[in-house]
Amino acid sequence: MRKRAKINDMTIRVVLFLLILTVFAIIEPAVLSATNVCSMINDSIFNGIAALGMMTVMITGAFDLSSMSISMLSAFLTLKFYNIIGYEGDFITMFLIAGTFGALIAMINGFISQKFSLSGFVVSIGTNLIFGSVFFIFLRSSYIKTDAMPQTLLKVRTTAILSLQSSGGTAANLNIGIVVLVLTAAALWLFLNKTQLGRGIYALGGDKVAVERVGYDPMTITLIAYAVFGACVAIAGIYFYSNAGTFEPGMIADKGSDVIASAIFGGCNMKEGKGSVGGILAGVAIITVIKSNLILLGVPVYYVTFTVGAMILLGVLFSTLSEQRLQRNRGR
């Protein structure tokens, strides 16, 4: 029964995604060109990886606002680390090292909230301020120039796994980041659904007492969930800064709201400990398709913010109403 419900919620999101895409494509056929499809996929990478991490924490029934600080700080530490050892970096260690830093940092949140039974959300507001600032107090400048970045990392920008020349003269390049997103999603799916610990994370969000009775240690599970969260946002962070080509602490701050929106849109529910990898991907797809097409569609610049807000609201309305109807039908 539960499984069926999940599939149905999922279906609603997919339908919504296709609906928006179809309407857009009718208005402007170029939306479905190879170039634009690749472009949209590239746009979704950061959001996707970070939202998957956010989901893991939300499944445990918490909510974390410090994601962008963790993201920024672990990217900073990774870049500095490369600087110190004088290594130009490579894609694999870049994600691994950043992920490790992120996991360690995020575990601080998990530890405090679990140890003192505080809400993770509340703790994260405090740690958000600390993570975002503490390392920069003593630095003359926290800026990292393009020259000082590990040069191999900068190649992330131009490395494509698929390259097509489309008719309009533009090239369709699928960025290597999509591999990271797919791998993260697959690994997370396996972890959450096929391992003991993963089931423990779902259990923790459902009923903390039951978790203990079954024999899971809530502290271990919380720490692991936060570590996964930290690793994901850190990977997203290093990807972001490699693409930016420079490091500035404040740059990433306003990416946070999209991540939260994608996670919640994707069906995450902290109150019930709900959330699935597929749902998140659908949520990210919807947010991306709304945000990455309006200029192509020719919406006047002044109206873009307004339109994004309105479309997200309508999208939420649509999916919720359908879900409610679904539940009512099932109730009968």
């Binding site: 909510f63 709201s257 939260i260 929106a261 919640i264 849109f265 529910n269 002044y302 109206y303 873009v304 913010t305 307004f306 339109t307 994004v308 807000g309 309105a310 997200i312 609201l313 939420v316 309305l317 919720t320 109403l321 409610q324």
Partner: peptide, 27 residues
Amino acid sequence: YFVAGLGLTAVLVTSATSQLFQGLALV
């Protein structure tokens, strides 16, 4: 209306309406 009437998550609704209102102000 969105939060109480339709039972949607407050964070999602208010972050969307935030863009809506800010966009309206920009217009």
